[in-house]
Amino acid sequence: MTEVVRVKCLRHVYPDKTEVRFCGLDFVVRAGERVMILGPNGSGKTTLLAHLTGLLKPVEGEVQVLGVDPVREFASLRRRVGVVFQNVDEQIIGPTVWDDIALAPRNSGLKPGEVRELVENILQAMDIYHLKDKIPHYLSGGEKKKVALAGAMVMRPELLLLDEPFDGLDPRSKREIIHLLDRFNHQFGTTIVMTNHDINLVPLVADRIYVISEGVILMQGSPREVFARLDILRQANLEPPLLVELFAHLSREGIPVNLPLTLEEARQELLPLLKSGLTCARYEEREPKRVACLEG
């Protein structure tokens, strides 16, 4: 697949002399992928995204986004890259929801009719048309996230960058955002790169994971590959998803189970064992001297 992003041994120094590095494995994102960056607080996840947007310039290393340097080609990438920051209150600046979403197409020099069509389409696609005349300041956290996401997606970008998109949301809002991201990815082919601290959501939103810690990319792989390496997660000061930890304990106890990533996979793993256990219990009640019905 076509490479959309490549970061190679990046080093950045902030004005206060704080230094952030990303070495080890190259950070590579291919077209159509949903990539999650996992790491402890202070590991530089937001710094990495800022370099992909062109807002920061590295002291050393290589950053390529859609085949160009995002700092040098910042203007040309604006239509091709959508961004949602962690604090969306700093991003939503329009007097109404409609005006805020219209900012990007207006700034791109599109005609009023074209702007109207793009805004109307994204409002309908995200099911927030009823918010179009609302003042953003008074919206709920979940509604603000949707408005920021609509502003980022209104130009149908090839790449979408999200910094902690689920931060502060209730379970229903998280499900709605997950559904929207899945729709953008499958319907429009949008490549998505995001950071996230809720590790239990990762299997629902990511095809590939990069684990970073102390300036080193420790591992990359599918959620199943990464979550099978509890040693790597703990090296990065990350707790594995609850399902993964539970089934790792069961496996260590000698129970023959595979690693599940979702509740449905866990159900499929456990149900045959539970049914077998119930059958054995009933059998042993009738034939107390005959045991070991679970052996083999």
Rank of each mutant, 00 (worst) to 15 (best):
T2R: 11
T2Q: 12
E3H: 00
V5Q: 02
H12M: 00
V13E: 07
P15F: 03
L25N: 06
D26Q: 04
F27S: 02
V28Q: 08
V29P: 00
G32I: 06
R34N: 09
V35T: 07
N41P: 07
G42H: 04
G44H: 03
G54P: 01
G61V: 01
E62Q: 13
V68P: 08
S76R: 15
G82H: 05
F85A: 10
I92H: 11
T96N: 11
D99S: 13
R106V: 12
L118S: 11
K132R: 15
P136Q: 10
P136T: 13
L139K: 01
L139N: 05
S140E: 06
G142A: 08
G142R: 07
K145Y: 00
L149T: 02
A150I: 08
G151C: 06
G151D: 01
R156F: 07
P157R: 01
E158T: 11
L159M: 02
L159R: 10
L160A: 03
D167F: 12
P171S: 08
S173G: 09
I177P: 08
I178Q: 13
H179E: 15
H186K: 15
Q187I: 08
G189S: 06
L201R: 09
A206F: 03
I212S: 01
L218E: 07
L218W: 02
G221E: 03
S222E: 08
E225D: 13
V226P: 02
L230R: 02
L233W: 04
L238T: 01
E239D: 13
L242C: 08
L243E: 04
E245Y: 00
L250T: 03
I255P: 09
N258R: 15
P260Q: 05
L261E: 02
A266H: 10
Q268W: 09
E269C: 04
L274W: 06
L278W: 04
E287S: 13
